[in-house]
């Protein structure tokens, strides 16, 4: 392939299609981290929740032989895990950070344990006939050249994610609930003093956090791939947490940062076509995140010094 082909591959409809495809789990991971930190609870178990949901989507759809029920089981798993963080930290006084670490390490091993129980394999669920969710062709739009190629024909959960992004935006910026949730994270005392039910807001935010991470997990095994393999989330949860750390409470910034990370992830796919060591190429998204965090920190420090 020539140099021109290489450059062109970044401006093709296919590349943008890939960007969207890889962005979905990252966006959901970012949302999960964002929702949890919104009320000041924090969730560093995004990775673990996604991983458990990945497996439960596979197992659930295999047991019920229904993609929809499999999805529901995955969602229940994710929400349950997020609520565990809430319960252990809010009611029982544990550090949310420690509960998060426990859940992450637990998920990493327990998924392998379950996998072995049901497939006799410690690597992947390839032998298990699980269901996947359908792809959706958007009528009319799919026939538009270029645009149709990019936005049509994605998995169902991609469009669910887009709808969720819009709903969350409306909630955060247009409803009293969003305003109150934000207030809880920004100044809990102040929120309490005007009679906001802080406990309820924290519960809700963890519920949203679990839900989004679970959808992210289900997407990984019911669309992005059709089987579960060990540690397949591969740091996406952490990338989401990094994006949230950079964006802070700014929702739009969260989406922009996540999309930038998604582009890095998509670039990997292009480079893999070339004769380069794949191990090196696979580090691109992570190096991208690292650079992003460094640039952000330097900029923030500079700004802080000026003030």
């Amino acid at each position: 392939m020539s140099w021109a082909d290489f450059v062109n591959s970044f401006f093709s409809a296919n590349f943008l299609y890939v960007v969207i495809r890889v962005s979905v789990p990252l966006l959901l991971a970012s949302l999960s981290a964002y929702m949890a930190s919104l009320t000041g609870v924090g969730n560093i178990a995004v990775e673990g929740i996604m991983l458990m949901s990945c497996l439960m989507a596979v197992l659930g759809s295999y047991w019920t032989q229904s993609a929809a029920l499999g999805l529901l089981i995955a969602l229940a798993t994710g929400i349950g895990m997020a609520l565990m963080i809430y319960m252990f930290s809010m009611s029982l006084g544990a550090q949310p950070l420690l509960v998060g670490i426990a859940l992450n390490t637990f998920a990493s091993s327990f998924t392998v344990f379950l996998l072995y129980q049901f497939t006799n394999s410690k690597g992947s669920s390839g032998t298990l006939p699980s269901k996947v969710l359908p792809t959706v062709d958007i009528p009319l739009i799919k026939d538009i050249p270029f645009l149709g190629e990019i936005v049509s024909g994605h998995y169902l959960l991609t469009y669910v994610t887009v709808i969720l992004l819009i709903l969350f935006y409306i909630m955060l910026y247009k409803t009293p609930m969003g305003m109150q949730m934000k207030a809880c994270g920004l100044n809990e005392q102040a929120a309490r003093s005007v009679g906001i039910n802080v406990t309820k807001m924290k519960l809700l935010s963890m519920l949203f956090s679990g839900l989004t991470a679970a959808i992210g997990g289900a997407y990984m095994t019911m669309g992005y791939a059709s089987i579960f393999s060990k540690d397949m989330v591969a740091g996406r949860g952490w990338i989401g947490i990094a994006a949230q750390g950079i964006a802070g409470i700014n929702y739009v910034a969260l989406l922009v940062v996540t999309m930038i990370f998604s582009v890095f992830q998509a670039i990997t796919n292009v480079f893999l076509l070339y004769d380069l060591p794949s191990e090196l190429i696979n580090t691109i998204p992570y190096v991208g995140v690292l650079l992003g965090v460094i640039f952000y920190s330097v900029a923030a420090t500079k700004k802080h010094r000026q003030v």
């Binding site: 247009k174 409803t175 009293p176 305003m179 109150q180 005007v194």
Partner: peptide, 11 residues
């Protein structure tokens, strides 16, 4: 905050 005026009940 805490006593927001609303329109269409949710906004």
């Amino acid at each position: 905050l805490g006593n927001e005026p609303r329109k269409m009940k949710i906004f």
